[in-house]
Simulated assay, not measured.
Amino acid sequence: MTISEAIGQSIGAFILWGFLMAFLYTLVSKINKKDKGTIQLAFIMMTSYFLSAFLDYETVTLIDWATYDVLTIGVIIVWGVLIKKPKPIAFMYLIVGLSINACLFFAMYYDIYVLEQTEVWWLWTLYAIGINVVDLLMVLVLIINKDFLGLVWVCNQVKARYMHRASALK
């Protein structure tokens, strides 16, 4: 195992620990509240990242990680359809965060396995930093459940403009 692989596994363990702590925090802080949406999302993310820890780092490829993120997005979307209550702010952040991660995995897969790129360039740096920053942001949003990047606000603004234009065309 190279030093970069060891660092990657250590960061992965830290992120897994973060999702575990986010789940435990939401469980303790929201257990007596009516809305359990954030607890359920934190559980989904903790379970997803926990199960991914059992993947064999020797044989797993970037396409496997991308597929795993897409499956997690699917589980979150199904959860969102099944609940009848308004979705927590974390819902949008998790969908966007996992989508970014999946896109980065797909891009790296294409670069390494299809284009057979062997020299480090900006995409590799973007991947290394992006995956970890997005994971940390997802942990953070599960803990604080606030729209700290304005993502939900922007989505609501776009949706309102789209609905306004759609109703004007009728």
Rank of each mutant, 00 (worst) to 15 (best):
W121I: 14
I73H: 05
L169K: 02
M138L: 14
N32P: 02
L115G: 11
Q157G: 07
K34C: 00
D69S: 10
T125Y: 14
A13Y: 07
K84Q: 06
L151A: 13
K170A: 11
M108K: 02
F106T: 05
Y113K: 12
V70R: 02
V96K: 00
T47K: 01
I95E: 09
V75Y: 13
F106D: 01
Y68H: 07
K34P: 00
K84H: 05
D69P: 13
V139M: 05
K36A: 03
Y49A: 01
D56E: 10
S48V: 11
I39W: 06
D135I: 11
L71V: 02
T47F: 11
D56H: 05
L142H: 07
R165S: 04
D35K: 02
V139I: 15
G80T: 01
P86I: 09
A22H: 08
K170H: 09
F43Y: 08
L126P: 15
I63W: 02
E58M: 04
W124R: 05
E119H: 10
S52E: 03
E5N: 10
I44P: 12
L16E: 10
L169E: 03
D64P: 00
I73E: 04
F14I: 15
I63G: 02
V114D: 10
W79N: 04
K146F: 06
F148K: 14
L98Q: 03
A168L: 13
N132M: 13
W124Q: 09
M45E: 07
G37H: 11
